[in-house]
Design a protein around this nucleic acid. Sequence first.
DNA 1: GCTATCACAATCGTATCCAATTCATCGGCA
DNA 2: TGCCGATGAATTGGATACGATTGTGATAGC
Lengths: 236, 236
Amino acid sequence: MNISEKLSPFELVPDDRALAIREALRNAIVDRRLAPGTKLVESEVGELFEASRTVVRAALQMLAFEGLVRTERNRGAFVSNPTPEEARQVFASRRLLEPGIAAAAVDRITDEEIEGFRHHLKAEVRFMSERGPAARRAEIKASGDFHLMLAAVAGNAILQRFMDELVARSSLVIALYGSTGVSRCGHHEHADILEALEQRDAVRASALMLHHIDHIEADLDIRVRDGLALKDALHI
Amino acid sequence: MNISEKLSPFELVPDDRALAIREALRNAIVDRRLAPGTKLVESEVGELFEASRTVVRAALQMLAFEGLVRTERNRGAFVSNPTPEEARQVFASRRLLEPGIAAAAVDRITDEEIEGFRHHLKAEVRFMSERGPAARRAEIKASGDFHLMLAAVAGNAILQRFMDELVARSSLVIALYGSTGVSRCGHHEHADILEALEQRDAVRASALMLHHIDHIEADLDIRVRDGLALKDALHI
DNA sequence: GCTATCACAATCGTATCCAATTCATCGGCA
DNA sequence: TGCCGATGAATTGGATACGATTGTGATAGC
């Protein structure tokens, strides 16, 4: 099975409609087409997807489990609005997981997969050079996909699911707290990590990954935002 | 198979009934009062808890997310029956997370929490000395709780949730693949880890934790079981 | 006697329905 | 004018109803 198929922009729509809705909402949230704090009214979503509230509720419940939406009893579901503390925890978790994932990937990566990564990096560069919010979103998404591809290569389904969640939440965090936007060094670091993978250098790969995560987090401005935190506290 | 006898009816603490049912089922699965492969019929569970299928489905969906039950479309939900590969992945994940959690706990643990751990270890010893399947289950549970307490101390809600899932699945794996039972060295290792925590020795704590996980996994007999795998393949 | 087909029972997936809760608007009153 | 409680619309939580799917057992045919 090749990677590009697993991570193609248009993932195969599962016949299960709840999963399909979950995927669509997930993408919208990660892409920030749905802003944090947005209320997701069950009937509205249902109408949008031509599904009844029952199935929408199932989708929202899944997203709540992933931490992408927050549900409040009798009030509904809202696109998650990560606090600075949550943001820190997301990256602390990634620091724990991803170096190990990179090391595991070294042992299992195939030449085909390396080729897939090269192809992906080219796309990342392309998005970086383009202007506009759409390209910016695509850049954030592609950057996250690199990490997801790596998790897929590592061959541990559990870790892969954890990374799914962490990358999605990272996208939210970056969108919320990103100061200058996606760090421009991101691509180079991805390329360096790929190089270490090619050389089957597990130590270097995991060290580079750790630094990479540190850089991503360092480029953020994770602080309580005046007024936003207030609104957060009483309304969200 | 009748599940009604294996669930103590009222262990519900949270006011949310779906969460209560999830907790009860979760405990039953982790304690192995519900054997892997057992079918969880929605209407049966609902009757047992005096809840409608709607809320039962929500609980089952949550458990499916955690990997404790497996759902098959149009067939229902079954208590998860981890394959050897899944078992290995569970422990690989723990090897990645828990040393870091132990190190983080060193920085945050309070004297009161240390006292709590001491108390918990005493209980572990007590269960170890008792005979019978009930004590055995209690021992497995207490052993897992040690790790969950540590995750709680580490102060990262995301990691704590991951550990919740991993410990629960580990209990299933141990119950399925445990050869000689819970390793008797388990308690000593917990005590050693606690000692490292008291001494605020992060390096030692994480090293001990890593060895501890290795020992737990080494005490298992993670192999495909003749006939069980077959039955597994076509029936589960 | 064995296999294939069919009908029925059990169970799930989903839509719809009703009660409970929340939120906002409006009117009364100090 | 400003605050407080009542009223009503909107929305969620949960139960139920109904069609769809699967598994099973009986029956017929080979």
